[in-house]
């Protein structure tokens, strides 16, 4: 893209990310199905290997840290299905990524109403 913008704290999922994250995102796409979520939970290492995740991706999945998953090529739409396995909602994830408590993150969101 000729439109060259850098946005702090933001990784647009472009071709470079799409190539890097393909295996990781394909695994997360599979989590649309309960049977696949169950298979992952039963044996995460085997499931990751089956989808050909690289070491960075496997480590990111083990850590459950969204920032690491994004660094490994994860796409927000597919990663959300991974978060769903652990019952994490968007405020849990927001808090985790911003280093805030969930309460503080929600207060920050609510504060925009005064903007």
């Amino acid at each position: 893209m000729s439109q060259k913008i850098t946005i702090p704290g933001t990784t647009p999922f472009d071709g470079a990310e799409a190539m890097k994250g393909y295996a990781l995102n394909k695994m997360c796409f599979s989590f649309n199905h309960q049977a696949n979520r169950d298979a992952f939970v039963a044996d995460p290492e085997a499931y990751m290997s089956q989808y050909g995740l690289n070491e960075q991706q496997k480590a990111a999945i083990r850590s459950k840290q969204v920032l690491e998953l994004i660094a490994a090529g994860g796409n927000a739409y597919y990663l959300a299905k991974f978060a769903g396995i652990f019952g994490l909602d968007m405020q849990d994830i927001g808090a985790q990524q911003t280093g805030m408590s969930k309460e503080a993150f929600m207060a920050k969101l609510a504060a925009y109403a005064q903007q």
Partner: peptide
Amino acid sequence: HQLEGERAGHINSQ
């Protein structure tokens, strides 16, 4: 809205 990254939670009501 923005779900991911260090900027998660970004809103711009203006």
